[in-house]
Design a protein around this nucleic acid. Structure first.
Lengths: 141, 141
DNA sequence: CTAGTTGCAAAGAGTTTGCATGGCG
DNA sequence: CGCCATGCAAACTCTTTGCAACTAG
């Protein structure tokens, strides 16, 4: 695995630090830019997007596409240990659930046996609604 | 459910007909526009988008957000008979596979029952490798 | 007739790119 | 010093919107 780290720059440190400090949240490119600007250390949009792309390729960050037409969101991910389980991302609150489950392992086996397809759960995210958000939506849509 | 059908116009007939004739495919707004233009019956982009929105609200068409960042795709759906399906996207060749499978319906049920999560397969894509690409990779890593 | 529809072009949001300058190693 | 990274602004893609002209019922 070629993990071309590239140069260590002030901008990259700032972006990565913010992502790591907010690893429980999903952040948009704009939020990152706004935060850094507010901190008095503005980083250009282009740089933010370019570095997020790189981090995503490196697997250090996950990229999500939540609510429709809206832009992408990014979330820091240690990468470690996320090979063997599935990810559920809530479209309502954006929360990411890591699910370890024997049944889901069987799913992978089924898809391989019946559909000749090898699931990569490093990249795969199941989108939907968590219990809380589903309840909210059925009350007041 | 208020199913405001609205007026019957030449443009709407054309759009709906194309969607129905290609109910096995995902179509982008652009593809629809291109097709109609090629047929010598151009329909404006705005009209296509507006009508697709309406059809989606009416449940006659399903809107998918698959390819990241890329635009939406639409697919005609009888509503009742047509079961929702899963999508498998090959990381090797980029091909998208549509899978209708009873077993995968059970998966959805399992996740709902055991993990309190409602999968939205409008947004969910399982990433991995198709048979062909998996074979290539095991030969030449 | 008259409210619903259409087309056009302009506006938006989010993201990417070309190119000259700047800075890490 | 050489190459990679940054910043800026312009370009791009997909979609929405304002508005005047048009048309189904």
């Amino acid at each position: 695995m070629s993990t071309a780290e590239g140069y260590r720059t002030r901008q990259r440190e700032l972006i990565l630090q913010f992502l790591m400090e907010n690893r429980q949240r999903h952040l948009s490119a704009e939020e990152i830019g706004d935060y850094l600007r507010a901190q008095g250390s503005p980083v250009s949009r282009a740089t933010i997007y370019r570095y997020l792309d790189r981090l995503t390729e490196q697997g250090k960050v996950r990229r999500y596409f939540l609510e429709e037409g809206t832009g992408a969101c990014y979330q820091f991910s240690d990468g470690e240990g996320c090979r063997e389980h599935f990810h559920l991302k809530c479209l309502g609150c954006g929360k990411l659930f890591h699910v370890e489950c024997d049944y889901l392992d069987q799913v992978q086996a089924h898809i391989y046996a019946h559909h000749q397809f090898t699931i990569d759960n490093t990249k795969t995210v199941l989108y939907g609604l968590c219990a809380g958000c589903a309840a909210k939506r059925s009350e007041q849509p």
